[in-house]
Nucleic acid binder design. Structure first.
Length: 685
DNA sequence: AGACCCAGGTTTTTT
DNA sequence: ACCTGGGTCT
């Protein structure tokens, strides 16, 4: 029974591994070996045959975390066994449940997952149909409202500029919103599509309506683990409660100080009140930090101590004092970027560090651009994590729309995107008539398009084009269902059939542009290929699911990080990671704390975010501030983030780089004579 | 139908 | 500053 999985664990960590039966809360401070504990715990269950690997469910929030966990578990029990463990994100887990049981609640098993972009398109379209509200309410506000509504939160009232109109608008919004939400949901349903929130909400609905389906899952999973429990929202919380009701072997791991997803409905009261939900819960606190220097922890502790809503704890470490934090004041964002680049170069040389020892963190994705430019100019290899532009590209959207409609003909967004691409003569007039038929007779676009032709509502060019389109979709739909042929080959054939290369050529002016766009197409083909190689029984739907929930861009950047490159990412996506050297850019009021977030989620969440950023650092943290930053194209003076004042002075060293000669200012005092060379190949996305 | 131009909004964070 | 969408012109 003794096992090697207990070696080199401290007493509370060991306890967390061994306490397998009944509800358990592990309060795991930043860097306290949380992932290690979860991995060991799973390995312990497997090795002692407390359950089969497949009877363990370990849920994380991000794919990154899931992959990390799979690797760590794999190192302990072997990759083959690790594969059997249900180690996944909430959303992927729910997709699996729904793909086999959703017919109980009136959807078809070939449902599409509506991406953020698809959802936006749909919202716009509905907004166009509903008279009156288009000018008042923005699609983006409504998208947020939909999500909050589905997660059982009260959607915020629309932000209005003048107070006088506010009340009026708000009243109008209140009466109008339910109507909108209903239209939205019925449109999705008609398209046999689920948005991200539906994946969770409908799983819960399924379980509530079909207790015997739920019972099967309850029977199946003997042990359930949840990472980052502080990030669970109401629906996830309910799903967990339902799932573990009979066996009650629920282990949740989290840190209330790292709850940074309140804006999408995460509710840290779940972790704060775990022992209320489960009175027999065992609680273990891990507060020894194995990651950071004492100085970094002292700074982070001092900052987070200003929060009132928390389970008080104090991280400690024995890794020595290390160096004080650095606070570098720069002129504007370009100067900041340059200072980051120089400081990075300086540290790298002094500490003989590798590029992937560095992370540059920021509050918002838009901060990455100037930094990218500076790094590229200096020939420093870097990767940017996140920012979803890949999936916003026309070519990618086009191809995926084709694939989506072949997987699920009812997918209206996909239909509308490609029915006339390339041109088939199906114009607005024909589509308008089809749309009316959809509305009047509750048909999907696909069925309506057939009816419209049969009844002669569309004729001539449009009818021929529509017919060709339908035939194309049906032909390839069959091809995709035939087992045996490679997905990639079918997709390539599809592109051939629609002469997509020519279509791109037609709309491109320069050869460079053509190359660029065709390379996007190629990237999709490669993504199909990668998926196919990595999957046992590849299918079109499987590919689309993976792409909706864990896109290829994410996967690639995870791989690239292992190469030697500096990582640029938001603080949110840095959670769970660690780097010897961390730079935090844009430490200014309005950015962190973000002005909008202060309003909507409160200051404390922003402070937690800052805390997360600081605690990513192992050896050293540098905070950058620009005195002026352009907003909407206009340069604005900034104020230092209030969080910097919360760091005790003796822990931080401030440097102000002069305002004018800053372009040539050297951050590192004795500059090595060698100017950065442009020889190294920069990473271009 | 398609190309072009202007106005207006935009910038939080993720599955 | 940049992108999108709508409107207009060809």
């Amino acid at each position: 029974m003794s096992d090697r999985f207990l070696d080199d664990l401290n007493p509370p960590q060991r306890e967390a591994v061994l306490h397998t039966e009944g509800p358990l809360l592990v309060l795991a401070g930043a860097g306290s070996g949380k992932t290690r504990v979860i991995a060991r715990r799973i390995a312990h269950i497997v090795a002692n045959k407390l359950a089969k690997p497949s009877q363990i469910l370990a849920v994380t929030f991000t794919n990154k975390a899931a992959e990390e966990m799979r690797t760590r578990v794999g190192e302990l029990v072997g990759a083959v066994v690790a594969k059997e463990i249900m180690l996944t994100t909430f959303h992927s887990f729910c997709v699996r449940v729904l793909r086999s049981h959703i017919h109980h609640i009136g959807y078809r098993k070939d449902f599409s997952i509506s991406s953020e972009g698809d959802t936006r398109t749909l919202v716009r379209r509905i907004l166009g149909d509903l008279e009156g509200a288009r000018e008042t309410f923005s699609p983006q506000l409504l998208q947020a409202a939909i999500s909050l509504h589905k997660n059982g939160c009260e959607p915020p009232p629309p932000a209005t500029k003048d107070n006088k109109a506010a009340e009026e608008t708000e009243a109008k919004y209140k009466t109008w919103l339910p109507e909108f939400l209903e239209s939205y949901q019925s449109a999705l349903r008609a398209a046999n599509s689920l948005d991200f929130d539906d994946l969770l909400v409908l799983t819960l609905e399924l379980w509530r309506k079909e207790p015997e389906v739920l019972a099967r899952f309850q029977q199946h999973y003997h042990y359930v683990l949840v990472d980052e429990y502080q990030d669970t929202n109401r629906v996830q919380y309910d799903l967990l409660r339902a799932l573990i009701e009979t066996r009650r072997n629920l282990c949740v791991v989290g840190d209330d100080d790292q709850s940074i997803y309140g804006w999408r409905g995460a509710d840290s009261s779940h972790i704060l009140a775990f022992d209320r939900d489960y009175p027999d819960a065992h609680i273990i606190t891990l507060d020894q930090n194995y990651r950071s220097t004492e100085t970094i922890l002292a700074a982070a502790n001092a900052v987070i101590a200003n929060n009132a809503e928390r389970r008080a704890k104090n991280l400690w470490s024995t890794l020595g004092k290390g160096r004080p934090l650095e606070w570098i004041v720069t002129g504007d964002e370009e100067h900041e970027a340059k200072a980051i680049m120089q400081w990075l170069t300086h540290i790298r040389e002094k500490a003989n560090a590798a590029y992937n020892d560095f992370a540059i963190l920021y509050r918002s994705n838009l901060q990455s651009r100037p930094i990218e430019i500076a790094l590229r100019q200096a020939g420093i290899p870097y990767i940017v994590v996140g920012g979803q532009e890949f999936y916003e590209r026309t070519e990618v959207k086009d191809i995926l729309a084709y694939l989506k409609i072949m997987a699920n003909t009812r997918n209206e967004t996909a239909f509308l995107r490609v029915v006339n691409m390339p041109r088939r003569g199906v114009g607005d007039a024909a589509l308008h008539r089809i749309h009316e038929l959809c509305m009047n007779e509750s048909l999907s676009v696909w069925d309506a398009s057939l009816q419209a032709m049969r009844r002669g509502l569309v004729a001539g060019n449009a009818a021929t084009g529509l017919e060709r389109f339908r035939l194309l979709v049906e032909t390839f739909r069959k091809r995709f269902r035939q087992p045996g042929t490679s997905l990639r080959a079918i997709v390539a054939e599809l592109l051939d059939t629609i002469a997509y290369r020519a279509e791109i050529g037609r709309t491109c002016k320069t050869p460079q542009q053509f190359e660029q766009r065709w390379s996007n197409v190629d990237a999709v083909l490669r993504a199909v290929e990668t998926y196919e190689k990595a999957t046992n029984a590849p299918s079109l739907i499987g590919f689309l699911d993976e792409n909706a929930l864990d896109n290829d861009d994410d996967r690639q950047s995870r791989e690239k990080r292992r190469e030697n490159a500096v990582t640029l990412m938001t603080i949110h996506s840095a959670k769970g990671l660690e780097f010897p050297f961390v730079f935090i850019a844009g430490c200014e009021e309005g950015l962190i704390p973000h002005e909008r977030s202060i309003r909507e989620n409160g200051l404390e969440e922003e402070r937690r975010l800052f805390y997360v950023a600081l605690t990513r650092a192992r050896r050293h943290a540098t905070l950058f501030e620009a005195m002026s930053r352009s907003r909407f194209g206009r340069a604005c003076m900034t104020k230092t983030s209030r969080f910097l004042a919360e760091i005790p002075e003796h822990l931080i060293h401030k440097r102000v780089l002069a305002a004018r000669d800053m372009v040539e200012a050297t951050v590192a005092p004795p500059k090595p004579k060698s100017k950065p060379r442009k020889k190294r190949r920069p990473r271009t996305p």
